[in-house]
Amino acid sequence: MVFWVPLLAWGAALFVAIYMVLKGPRPITIGRVIDQLLRYILVFPVGLMGLWAFMGHVFFAEQAAAAIGWATSPFQFEVGMANLGIGLAGIIGAFVRSAGFRAAVGVVMVGFLGGAGVGHIVQIAQTGNMAAGNAGPILYTDFLTPIAVLGLLLLQKLFFRAPAA
């Protein structure tokens, strides 16, 4: 299951974003595409994956640790709580259209998920840990997700500024 969840979350984000763009007003604009992509990346790969990781580390710690190739640890509770915060912030950020709030979510994700991604690479290099929860899709989405959120926010800021009053 650990292998599929990041792929399903990203697939759902892209599917729903495309659906919402096609269902929305015409003409379709790049600004609307970026907005919908950002919204549904915040809902699925950030929000729901954060909540999924929270539940795994807090309520199913042994299974989560095994999927990552770890022994269980009391630190999983702390990792789970960090995931809870990121998940809730992602869902809130999807519906609160504050660029500052969304940027803050992205920055926290860079620190936490980016750091986790670096940790996965170190574990692969030092121990050969190729467990699905360490070297599978989660490794890539630990980098992709925060980069996508911050990159889409940057595109919005650079190319779709509100006209001067």
Results as ranks from 00 to 15, higher is better:
46 V>P: 10
95 F>I: 15
68 I>F: 12
117 G>Y: 01
31 G>H: 14
72 T>H: 04
64 A>R: 07
32 R>G: 12
124 I>L: 11
65 A>S: 15
125 A>Y: 13
70 W>Q: 04
82 A>G: 10
44 F>L: 05
61 A>V: 12
44 F>W: 13
69 G>I: 04
121 I>C: 07
42 L>H: 01
33 V>W: 07
75 F>T: 14
104 A>G: 10
53 A>M: 06
47 G>D: 01
85 G>K: 08
99 A>Q: 15
34 I>K: 07
102 R>F: 01
88 L>G: 05
72 T>G: 03
100 G>I: 13
110 V>F: 11
90 G>I: 05
74 P>F: 01
44 F>K: 09
98 S>V: 14
113 L>H: 04
47 G>A: 01
80 G>R: 12
119 G>T: 10
66 A>D: 05
62 E>K: 15
121 I>N: 07
27 P>F: 00
27 P>Y: 01
63 Q>D: 05
32 R>Q: 13
65 A>V: 12
47 G>V: 01
34 I>F: 10
111 G>C: 08
48 L>S: 03
34 I>G: 08
69 G>Q: 06
40 Y>S: 02
103 A>M: 13
43 V>K: 06
108 V>T: 10
121 I>F: 13
49 M>E: 00
87 G>A: 05
43 V>Y: 03
63 Q>G: 09
64 A>E: 08
